[in-house]
């Protein structure tokens, strides 16, 4: 299976839009020298300038929980080793082990393409594609329109019950 990270991974949202209307992101090393990074913000504090209005709502975590303090392009695992940003699944899986197991077995996270891998790939999204790393709670959405049944009024449209 192919696991795709979102294009915004490892970038900060500048708030600008390109010609196609997509958000323009800036990768971390644009501003942070990987060899001489600034100190990470303390827990509870969130850098506002230049960081696209990041708000952290991920349990009790702070920046240093996930980001490698010495390299902004890498993430830090529990045993101290670091992994590149694109291996973010490993990091998520440390705390969310059962979910990562479910994901790898296919019972979480869905996918597009083929169930029959001999005919084509199964393309999946990594965790952070759906769960924004800093605020992973899945957002509320408005549903697609309900069926337009005769004689069954849509919620709030009881006056349309008889057509």
């Amino acid at each position: 299976m192919i696991v795709r990270n979102p294009p915004s991974l490892g970038t900060v949202d500048t708030g600008l839009r390109d010609a196609m209307g997509a958000s323009v992101g800036v990768s971390c090393e644009t501003c942070h020298d990987p060899a001489h990074p600034d100190a990470l913000a303390r827990k509870g504090e969130v850098p506002q300038d230049f960081h696209g209005g990041i708000s952290v709502a991920h349990g009790e975590l702070g920046c240093a929980s996930c980001h490698a303090p010495e390299d902004r392009t890498r993430l830090r695992l529990a045993d101290g080793t670091t992994v590149p940003m694109r291996e973010v699944l490993q990091l998520c899986g440390q705390c969310h082990g059962p979910k990562l197991r479910d994901f790898s077995k296919g019972s979480h996270g869905g996918g597009r393409g083929f169930w029959d891998r001999s005919r084509g790939p199964w393309v999946r999204d990594s965790c952070v594609a759906c769960h924004a790393a800093h605020a992973p709670a899945y957002p509320l959405v408005m549903p697609a329109p309900p069926p337009n049944d005769r004689f069954l009024p849509r919620a709030g449209h009881e006056e349309l019950a008889h057509d």
Binding site: G109, G110, R112, G113, W115, D116, S118, C130
Partner: peptide
Amino acid sequence: RGRLPACAEACPTGA
């Protein structure tokens, strides 16, 4: 033909 059904592909939560 080996592909996923449309509903499975469309599900954004992977349910």
